[in-house]
């Protein structure tokens, strides 16, 4: 994950918005782009987005807070998403998630104290015939077990 951690300026937010103004219903593509470029969507940018799209700040807030993907604060340097859905549960995903959280010193999904890894829940990655599945940053992982996950987490600096 190489996205910068600093909040975008008003001009930077406007520039992203401008790229999408020609679209129908541009808000989600705008939010995705902001998060992709800056790592998160700061609340300080809501007013700019609202102004450009002629909607209220509350509407922007409502959309950002509705979708689990959007975050208003930076996450850890790496993001681990372990699948919680039924197909992965049938092959031991819940125990794997518990073990991962314990190793990272977390009692629920969140970011490690050293800021290295953020664990997020995910419900299905479409890897249901080869679970337990997870996503470490952009890398899909299948047939995951504790030994391999421990090694990957160590490599990620956790």
């Amino acid at each position: 994950m190489s996205a910068p951690r600093t909040a975008p300026t008003e001009a930077e937010v406007s520039a992203v918005v401008a790229r999408h103004l020609h679209r129908e219903g541009p808000l989600l593509p705008i939010l995705h782009d902001l998060q992709h470029e800056f790592g998160f969507i700061p609340e300080t940018g809501f007013q700019t987005i609202a102004h450009e799209l002629n909607i209220t700040r509350a509407e922007v807030y409502g959309v950002v807070s509705f979708y689990p993907d959007f975050r208003t604060e930076p996450h850890g340097r790496h993001v681990l998403k372990i699948c919680r859905a039924e197909a992965c549960q049938s092959v031991g995903a819940r125990a794997l998630e518990e073990a991962a959280l314990a190793r990272l010193g977390l009692d629920r999904p969140g970011t490690t104290a050293n800021g290295a890894v953020t664990v997020e829940p995910v419900y299905c990655l479409g890897l249901c015939a080869c679970g337990p599945a997870a996503l470490l940053d952009d890398k899909p992982l299948a047939h995951l077990d504790e030994t391999r996950l421990t090694r990957l987490l160590a490599e990620a600096g956790a």
């Binding site: 859905a85 039924e86 197909a87 992965c88 419900y123 299905c124 479409g126 890897l127 249901c128 015939a129």
Partner: peptide, 11 residues
């Protein structure tokens, strides 16, 4: 938006 666990045909 193929979110059902156990499905991956769309993907």
């Amino acid at each position: 938006d193929e979110g059902d666990s156990g499905t991956f045909a769309d993907r």
